[in-house]
């Protein structure tokens, strides 16, 4: 681990697969001990932990539903006991429940807002002061291009991601003076389980003519988590192959 970083660890929510798994591996490569959070996919999380440990890194499985306030609190206590303050948080856990607005049921609205926005808020609230005290912190929120550009059928998802970007910016200006940066990464179309139902002809609309990969998103997160990104805060890094250019 770099000498400029205080001792601590990283937490990646939804780290058992997709973008989260790629992020966990990338942070571990950069020397961070990584707590790999999952809600139910313990096997997936354990697989990521095993890969990190096989590469000489340190990792643990941290099971918690980000919507469960008590579970989030417990998770932080467990991770802090394991490797000290959580200095990097990647709010990646997210869900979709697509429908056009007249068809979105209350439950489909709340579940998406709760997982994608309330969860990251609670995690940010818990994470921020230890980072402030350590005079180092990195909060990276995985948002989406649909938070800024409309995509019919995703009003709930879009609202949650737009909210996440606003949470990101506001938190950033509150804590910037303490060496804590808060940024969002907005992927376009990335091939993961979350997008397994997306029409493959979607690629024709993308200037890069292909979906992104979890590794390409993880590389951006890795950079934002690094000491080199210390003057980047309150911004959103769009990673979409030119889709919204």
């Amino acid at each position: 681990m770099s000498d400029t970083r205080p001792d601590g660890c990283a937490l990646v929510t939804g780290g058992s697969r997709g973008i989260g798994a790629a992020v966990a591996l990338a942070l571990a490569e950069d020397g961070w001990p990584v707590a790999v959070n999952c809600r139910v996919d313990r096997e997936g999380a354990e697989g990521i932990v095993a890969k990190i440990e096989a590469g000489g890194g340190a990792a643990m499985v941290a099971v918690a539903d980000v919507v469960d306030a008590q579970a989030v609190e417990q998770m932080f206590d467990d991770v802090e006991r394991w490797r000290g303050p959580v200095l990097v948080v990647v709010n990646n856990a997210g869900v979709r429940a697509d429908a056009i607005v007249p068809e979105i049921a209350d439950a489909a609205w709340s579940s998406v807002i709760d997982t994608n926005l309330l969860g990251p808020f609670r995690i940010t609230r818990r994470a921020v002061m230890p980072m402030v005290r350590a005079r180092f912190g990195r909060i990276i929120n995985i948002a989406s291009v649909v938070g800024e550009r409309a995509n019919a059928g995703q009003a709930n998802y879009a609202a949650s991601k737009a909210g996440l970007m606003a949470l990101s910016r506001t938190t950033a200006v509150e804590v910037a003076r303490r060496g804590v940066t808060v940024n969002a990464v907005a992927p376009g179309y990335v091939q993961t389980e979350l997008t397994s139902d997306v029409d493959p002809t979607m690629s024709r609309a993308i200037p890069a003519r292909r979906p992104g990969t979890p590794h390409e998103i993880a590389a951006c997160v890795r950079f934002l988590a690094s000491s080199e990104a210390s003057y980047i805060t309150g911004t959103t890094l769009v990673v979409d192959g030119g889709l919204t250019a």
């Binding site: 002061m129 402030v132 005290r133 509150e174 804590v175 003076r177 303490r178």
Partner: peptide
């Protein structure tokens, strides 16, 4: 600012 006061409290 407010953040400083929260930290002072801690």
């Amino acid at each position: 600012d407010s953040l400083d006061m929260v930290e002072l409290g801690q």
